[in-house]
Amino acid sequence: MAIRRTPAQTGRVYPLGAIRLYREDLQAIAKAVAELGPLHIAIRSDGLVMDDPADFADLPEKIANVSIIARSKESESRIIVELFYDRAAVTVIEPDTLTSSICVRIQDICSKRTRVLGKPPSVIPKTGFLPSKSDVLTAAVFAGALAIPTWALVNWWGPTISNGPVSVGWLSALVGATALALGLVAAFLRTRIRGATLVNAYEADRPPFWRRHRSEAWLSTVGAVAGAVLGYFINQLL
């Protein structure tokens, strides 16, 4: 019996970043993948399998670890969409014009649902608690972005502050330490926010927290700023 080597399949992985997807997004991705061939959808969190995008309507609102797969009948081309809590990516096996088009549409859908600090990385990040080098660099840039304007304000108000109980040096050190701490927190959150959060409901029925409380947040911010300015002028008059 002759021994033959099977040809190696070519493939590429496209990270999607940290995303929040709703039912309309899941259905749109499944419909796009189904253009390649028979659809296979697996809900690993509940051990369910289905083959129709409309079946998402029969699932509970909270789902996780969803994979959407299709394989061409005419070739070895495949598309694998993994929407897991710790990673979200599209894998294209034996890419061609059709699979590339589908992949672009999936990326376009997910790009509109990117969470804060969830920009897609160049490669799939490894799971872990420690920030990567790029995350530490992000923290340093974040700290600098806060420290530089704060340093300018401290120098501007320096004469006034120096007459009080807090010196300019101590205040600058406090602001710098706070900025660095915030940067490291942001870097840590980036390592935690990396996969797909799935909400099996329409966005109109489950808007995010910020959208629900946007008007209250703006009113609180404006009120706080106005109160600070008014208090400053009152102290100057007294």
Rank of each mutant, 00 (worst) to 15 (best):
S75Y: 04
R78E: 15
R78H: 10
I80N: 15
I80M: 11
E82W: 04
F84Y: 14
Y85T: 15
R87P: 09
A89I: 04
V90H: 10
I93K: 14
E94S: 13
E94A: 12
P95E: 13
P95M: 09
T97V: 15
T97S: 15
T99R: 05
S100K: 14
S100H: 13
S101W: 05
C103T: 15
V104G: 12
V104D: 15
R105Y: 05
I106R: 12
Q107V: 04
I109G: 02
C110R: 03
C110G: 02
S111M: 12
K112P: 02
K112H: 07
R113D: 03
R115I: 12
V116I: 13
G118A: 07
K119C: 05
K119G: 08
P120Y: 04
S122Q: 11
V123Y: 07
I124F: 14
F129A: 10
P131N: 09
P131F: 11
S134C: 03
S134Q: 12
S134G: 12
D135C: 03
D135S: 07
L137W: 06
A139M: 13
V141R: 11
V141E: 08
F142R: 13
F142S: 14
A143Y: 09
G144I: 04
A145G: 10
A145C: 08
A145Q: 06
A147Q: 02
A147N: 06
A147G: 02
I148D: 07
W151F: 04
W151H: 05
A152L: 11
L153D: 00
V154G: 01
V154R: 00
N155V: 03
W156P: 00
W156K: 00
W156N: 00
W157S: 00
P159I: 01
P159M: 01
T160R: 01
I161D: 00
N163K: 15
G164C: 04
P165C: 02
P165R: 03
S167Y: 02
S167M: 06
G169C: 03
W170S: 14
L171E: 03
S172L: 02
S172M: 03
A173I: 13
A177S: 04
A177P: 02
A179Y: 09
